[in-house]
Amino acid sequence: MNTCPENIVLMMHDYLDEEISQEKEKELKVHLQSCEACKTHFHELKKTVALVQSTSHIQAPGNFTQNVMAKLPKEKKKAGVERWFHRHPLLAAVAVFFVLMGGSLFTNWNGGEELSFTQSEQVVVEGNTVVVPEGETVQGDLTVRNGDLRIEGTVEGDVTIVNGQQYMAGAGGVTGEIEEIDQAFEWLWYSIKSAAKELGSFGSDE
């Protein structure tokens, strides 16, 4: 079977690779018509190619991508955050707002560890307690932080106590509202409310 001339077999392969010149192709054709062995050889080669090409295209299993992704080394956290910000610009803005806002609030919150209160001549301090003595009247609002407030006199305005308690003596009186804030969360809420009020007043000023 394998008696075909070497150069003719080479031509067959060049033909199959589509790299044959026109003259050579003619030469091949002429030879094939006269040589039965080469004709068979050439036919078998073409059949081989056709058979290999006839194999069906198969697809990767359905969960292929997930399996690959599960095996990849963990990505840097930074990229995940960046992508999240990229996808949710509005949420990202809100998140940033809360982070900054929360930050500033907590500085406020932690900043006032010591007792502080609205300066007023009528007020007396006893240890950790701010006292409005009997018969005295505080004009305006009174705010006490990190301490208690005992009112024996009168406050003509609102009273706010942060991180403390207020005791009202029988004779004491407050003309405005009394508010006690003793938790971080409430402080946050209170700050937001005041900020909103301030914003509102800014708006009306303009």
Binding site: Q59, T65, V68, M69, K78, E82
Partner: peptide, 20 residues
């Protein structure tokens, strides 16, 4: 840049050819 999800898309694009 470290975006792993983008690689998932590459896998999707080439998985059949590579597997075949």
């Amino acid at each position: 840049k470290g975006d792993q999800d983008a690689f998932g898309e590459i896998v999707e694009l080439f998985k059949d050819r590579v597997y075949h």
